[in-house]
Design a protein around this nucleic acid. Sequence first.
DNA 1: GCAGATGCGTTCATCAATGAACAGATCCCG
DNA 2: CGGGATCTGTTCATTGATGAACGCATCTGC
Lengths: 182, 182
Amino acid sequence: MVKVDRRIAKTQEALKKAVIELMTEKNFDDITIQEIADRADVNRGTIYLHYQDKFDLLDRLIESHLNEMGEMDEWACELEWKDALVPYFEYFEKNYLFFSTMLASKGAPSSFRTRLLTSFMEGFKYEIDRDSGRNTNLTDDVMLQYAGTAYVGIIEWWIKNGMPHPPRVMAEQVGTLLGRSL
Amino acid sequence: MVKVDRRIAKTQEALKKAVIELMTEKNFDDITIQEIADRADVNRGTIYLHYQDKFDLLDRLIESHLNEMGEMDEWACELEWKDALVPYFEYFEKNYLFFSTMLASKGAPSSFRTRLLTSFMEGFKYEIDRDSGRNTNLTDDVMLQYAGTAYVGIIEWWIKNGMPHPPRVMAEQVGTLLGRSL
DNA sequence: GCAGATGCGTTCATCAATGAACAGATCCCG
DNA sequence: CGGGATCTGTTCATTGATGAACGCATCTGC
């Protein structure tokens, strides 16, 4: 992990935060580069030092979240389901604004749901029970699609309904259900 | 008003915020330059581009607040007392952490109370009623000291007690009392 | 249709922030 | 007392951010 210049980290952080905020206020397509720069308190030209355009910025924003969740996979892979899921729901809670915005916005980035699903299914692949024999009549693609859409769906519900249960409770219940499905 | 480079504004803002935060956690004398830099996410050397040392930083932090309140004077000087005080109490409320820290900390910057008092008395000087004749038996220094300490005292009480009344209510009551005293 | 306005992407000289290093001061523990 | 550790204030080459300008494209309304 090469440590990045703190100036770069700060401006990128500010830019990502600005995009999320603006997306709660208007459609992504209606957001202008100048608005992002103003909101982030950054020179307009500075954006182009890091990103191609606003679509690239949004893309990298999504990517960074998926990567961060990917890193949590490695920490969690040796834990029981319900323990492993706690940090995930805490992450969703912490980045509430991002997830609610990305899951709600009806415009171009509806692809987010798909990318999230793909990412989850990729992670589930190594969690399928292949030993006990209880899944011999099930194929991987069906199990992955089933568990993946269920997981995305429950997160979507949880976020959009103002997170009615604390992360720990969600982790326990969803952990139980995912364990039964894989 | 020459516009300052936004990089300068950002780092100074971060440094001031860092100092206030750290002062809520430990005595000012125990705070190290490195801690301030870390908290502000700024290189240690950068501090010396703007300030002599941490005392200068604290000094300029106080100064900037007094100046900002001084600018509010000019906007407010032609209003009635109770209207003029509203933005002040809103300012105290907004910068709650600063005022509570500065008024509470028992160490070296107990001078803050004195500086605040001096600043208020300076502002009151032009508000004394010299026309109606009801103050002919009173001297300026007595009135200023009386109203000044009362004002500082009531702010101190309000802040330390968790701002039990909204700014508008405080402004009305304190406005009435100050009007009677000057 | 065209003129003004707005947004985009890029350029460049200038300035601010970085981080690493340095010597000196002070602290503190053995 | 001595020496390791920590904090300070300063230096400097390097890198990132700035803001102003530019040409170009796309709207918008007269």
